[in-house]
Amino acid sequence: MERVISMANITTDEKIAIINRYHANPEQALNILIDLQFTSSDGYIDQATAQLVAAHLGVTETRIYEMVSFYAILKEAPQARYVMKICNSAPCHFSGEQIVSHELEEILDIQEGQMTHDGLFMYHSIPCVGACAQAPFIKIKDRVFANLTADDVAQLISDLRAGRYPEL
């Protein structure tokens, strides 16, 4: 299922308010983009938003796009309701990270970077997030679900489905 391609849930005024929170300072472009992305439930920066940011910061759209496409945290495409981050760097990779990715692939029937049909889930393999001592783990937003077993993963998914973590 295709979702609407836009950061529909925040209005232009809200976006401008975020930009102004940083005094439309071009130096704070990254902070602004991250804030915009996290405020939108779609979890990405679309072109219209990039243009808006560029115009307010007095830089070209190209500068903004270069950042959006460079920094791994910034996304160019809509994200799922729950984006699960799995670390695939060596310390985690050799501490059982595969248990998690394998389990997610099984339960959700999606590959890395894909979204489930209901738009609820997606997982990314990313480099170290500084939780190496808790591997295997899943990180959703700032929350780390640590030292997971396969059963823990299954439980987490059903909990998320059931809406047990509304803050995430």
Partner: peptide, 20 residues
């Protein structure tokens, strides 16, 4: 002074492109 074509993405996927 136009800044149309520029570098997008990174690593091996780096590509010269107009915005988006």
């Amino acid at each position: 002074g136009r800044d149309i074509i520029s570098i997008s993405h990174r690593g091996f996927d780096t590509k010269m492109l107009p915005c988006y």
